[in-house]
Simulated assay, not measured.
Amino acid sequence: MTAQNSATLDPGSPVPLYQQLYLLLRSQIHGGALRPGDKIMGEAELCEAYDVSRITAKRALNELADTGLVIRKRGSGTRVTDRLPPQPLKASIDGLLEKVGEMGRNTSVRVLSSALMPAPPEIRAALNLPEGARALQSRRVRSLNDQSVSFLEAWIPEDVAEGAALEAESPTPMLLQLERAGISVSSATQTITATLADALSAAALDVPMGAPLIDTRRVVFDAQDRAVEFIRVLYRPELYQIEVAMRRVQGDNGAAWVPRPTGRPEGRPDRPGAPATKAPKTP
């Protein structure tokens, strides 16, 4: 029987204790600390290890069972299922359009809703739209091996959506539809942070409210530098990884890490005895 109890729960957190315990145990399963067939602490042992009530421990274990991560049997305890969690999707900061296409081929999409509506202030600011402007909103869930990975909300200016004849109900990513319609996508700005699941995203991703999520927001621009799409994607962190490829170089201010495109590098990273690659001089 195994369960790491080095972590502690925070009674002062707005996240309920049963959710904290559920997330801790789920993280141990996805991280490999708890492996298929391992027996997890019982309710009484969890109560003692984490100083929680029997009801809290029971609910956390029931949440794990409901998501298919464990099997609970009276008399034999709770064990991790033999079904291994899917390997997380990997994405890089570069190769934006290519990664969208790759993800579309390896996952399935369920369209939750799509409608043309007045753009809220945040969307107007991101897309540089005037007050009262409308935009096409599309909400989708992307799944990997029948497990929800991401909850996506995209906004496209009304004239762009109509000009490109976008099919909002199609599982094809909006970005690819824009490209196919002849819109030249040239650049994007992206921010990545963390957030907690609200009622909408929790239901879409099949996670408890308050569960941690990766929050990615991106504004896509065409060749004329006009914003043609705002997209927010919430990812389950155990099923999604962001990969940044880097290269060690020697600059005027010493050695530094600089980003390089993912995939096969143009040249081997600098190493002892090899000619140094000059980094840009720091202003």
Results as ranks from 00 to 15, higher is better:
E229F: 01
S76T: 15
S138R: 13
P265V: 07
G210M: 02
I40Y: 00
S201Q: 08
L89H: 05
Q190E: 15
H30K: 06
D206M: 03
N253P: 00
L69I: 01
A197H: 03
M246H: 10
A227M: 05
E243M: 15
P280L: 06
P16I: 03
A7Q: 03
I93T: 11
A168T: 12
E169I: 08
P14D: 09
A3I: 13
D206Q: 14
E131P: 00
R105G: 07
L205K: 02
R79L: 07
V15D: 01
L84Q: 14
A197E: 14
I183P: 02
E179A: 11
A223C: 11
L213S: 12
R264P: 07
W155P: 01
P280S: 07
L64V: 03
A133L: 10
A274R: 12
L17S: 12
A227Q: 08
D38N: 13
R142A: 05
L196S: 11
N62L: 14
I231E: 06
L116N: 03
L61D: 10
S13A: 14
A255D: 07
G104H: 12
L213G: 05
Y235C: 10
L69R: 07
P88V: 06
A165E: 13
A119T: 02
I183F: 11
P120S: 05
I123W: 03
T67D: 12
Q4T: 15
R54P: 03
L200E: 15
V228Q: 09
G263R: 08
L9R: 02
T282F: 09
L116D: 08
G42C: 12
T193Q: 14
F221H: 15
K90Y: 07
P14C: 09
D270E: 15
L234H: 15
R268F: 05
A135F: 10
G273F: 02
A57E: 14
S76W: 12
E162Y: 09
E43M: 11
P120V: 04
V80R: 06
L61C: 08
F221C: 04
A7H: 06
I123L: 02
E266C: 01
R142C: 04
R217P: 01
A274C: 08
S187E: 11
P120C: 03
Q190P: 07
A7Y: 02
